[in-house]
Design a binder for these strands. Structure first.
Lengths: 343, 343
DNA sequence: TCAGAATATGTAAGCGGTTACATTCGAATA
DNA sequence: TATTCGAATGTAACCGCTTACATATTCTGA
């Protein structure tokens, strides 16, 4: 069986030979370090161009102990927003000459296995984790002694010297509650996205505190559990509408569930927003095209990805001992459309 | 600055020393090849466990000229379905001990640059490309002399010995046309997704042939260009509804545009499906929760990813000379809901 | 019991780069 | 022109692993 590289991999030796210099010199011009006479540099560069030479990543990695690769772990479930985050990450990383090694995991055990393989196998220089269900509160513990830069997205691991990027779910949620309250709602229900999901939990907290802060019809329990899917939002709404008296507004922890909620309202012949106000979270692209258009909170996913990449690159450049623990919170803006009845 | 691996990378030498054997023997048990006495094997394995040793990927790769990594290129735009495909690919690949190096590109030049880096840098063993706009007809030509396995998703490059995975867009589209025709529609419009997009183009072809095959109100030109977004579907519909006589049905090349179309109909006070039937393509998760629920064509994205990974692994195992050119076409099923007016 | 075969293990040369150190070169100075 | 010294380049070891080949060990059977 022939070589993977198609039999014609060009090596630094080939370049050296053609350019009539030693491999050391070629290496020097590659890493445009040191002093190389400009005539020599030019000659070598020409040969590099001619031979279309790109240094073998394994060889460089072995020597330098750097792979220029960042690991990216994301959950197996709920694909709905990760592509955009990935693109945000990728754009910035690839502009800075770094690659992404990606993998998804469906549970903690698999996650740890993947990370272990990446790190101990020396495949990555840093790790970005999107694990909304991996929070301190549910006992998730990644063995974090790897000493490579870590960036967490939407989870509060609180690992020392790591960067955490969070959405300001809580404040966005309380603001949404304020908005609903101002519209006169006193019985606002919440469709949760999963107890162990960070974003869902924070949105829930915001909801709860909103319920405390603003006037309600007495002691209410209007929270039902969903799982971020349209169908769970649909079911949850059916369930909620059995209550007596009924909620006058529903705050769904994401847009997909809000869409399910709208559909359920329709099935129950309830007018949205007249009989029931419904708001979501995420501002997915179709939210503006619902009937009624969905009031929601905009989440800048690309930007989130960009920030993660930025943090990673920064940490990659700084000495481990000088790395700080950072928490970046992205402020969120709500988008008022028709489904909340404010127009 | 300390080593990336956190100062304590365990090497095969460490294992050898502790197990009191040579590195060759450790290597043998790692690759459970050759004959190693079972007592020795056991002892070595114990040490490997104890030290949590995982061979350095760069070292292995350098020696073996195999990285156990597959490159994955996807377009920068239109993120909407890629996450699921990626998950499909990842699941199967990681179960078979392969990693994914991912990157997105926004044009051909960038694409080629990325691929070149991946391949000549020896970073990958095979390449999966999702480039719906990279078709033979628009002059896109990747330099394909890399001799590594290539799998193309939704593009017809016709590279020899490569595998191409395609959706049966054409037949699904003609069937959709048949369905609309049977419902009595004679003026069916089409919202295109982009001339250079493979899927969009095939759906368009199916539409056109359907228009020829089934009765229409004379010579019609009811095609307008969109770009797969809700807003483009909205605009396109506004445009189409200016025609006189109006189309009685709209076939959008994807669900997002169909959603935009429904919203436009609503804005124009047209009832869907009574005044205007609307159908889409993709079966995104919210399609069933529209009002009316969207008639569409289901696209099994995870399965698509799985098939791509499967093809890749197979090709990775077969001698380049024995690799065949394959084209896998995934049959598609349409989902009849309310928006076409068939109930 | 021991020669010889078969099997298990060790030795060392690379894989393709980087880099410390040695060497050579060229320009400046005396 | 000879000497000196810094800059440019070359030499070779090494990164962690695999593997061809050499060597050691065990197992046969006479």
């Amino acid at each position: 069986m022939s070589s993977t590289y198609g039999d014609q991999m060009t090596t630094i030796k080939d370049v050296a030979k053609v350019a009539n210099v030693s491999t050391a010199t070629v290496s020097r011009v590659l890493n445009n370090s040191d002093k190389v006479r400009s005539a020599t540099r030019e000659r070598v560069n020409t040969v590099i161009q001619e031979l279309n030479f790109i240094p073998n990543a394994a060889a460089v990695g072995l020597q330098r102990k750097k792979t220029k690769t960042v690991g990216l772990i994301f959950p197996d479930a709920s694909a709905y927003c990760f592509a955009e985050i990935i693109q945000g990450i990728n754009r910035h990383l690839s502009q800075n000459d770094h690659q992404i090694l990606i993998s998804s995991a469906h549970d903690e055990a698999e996650e740890i296995k993947i990370i272990n393989g990446f790190v101990r196998g020396g495949r990555i220089d840093g790790l970005i984790m999107m694990m909304p269900s991996a929070n301190g509160n549910n006992g998730f513990r990644i063995p974090l002694a790897y000493k490579i830069p870590e960036v967490f997205i939407s989870c509060e691991i609180n690992a020392p010297r790591s960067t955490t990027i969070l959405l300001d779910n809580y404040n966005a949620a309380t603001e949404m509650m304020e908005h609903l309250s101002k519209l006169g709602h006193k019985r606002i229900a919440f469709i949760h996205g999963g107890e162990h999901n960070y974003d869902a939990h924070e949105r829930y907290r915001g909801y709860m505190d909103g319920m405390k802060a603003y006037p309600t019809d007495g002691e209410l329990n209007l929270v039902v559990m969903g799982n971020f899917t349209e169908s769970s939002g649909f079911q949850a709404t059916l369930e909620l509408m059995k209550r007596n008296p009924r909620p006058t507004a529903i705050f769904a922890a994401n847009d997909a569930m809000a869409i399910g909620a709208i559909e359920a309202a329709r099935a129950l012949k309830l007018r949205v927003p007249a009989d029931l106000a419904i708001v979501g979270f995420d501002d997915i692209s179709s939210a503006a095209y619902m009937d009624p258009a969905l009031t929601t909170v905009h989440v800048p996913l690309r930007r989130l990805g960009h920030l993660a990449a930025e943090a990673m690159l920064k940490n990659l450049k700084t000495n481990p001992a000088d790395r700080t623990t950072e928490k970046i919170i992205i402020p969120l803006q709500h988008i008022i459309r028709r489904s909340c009845g404010s127009e």
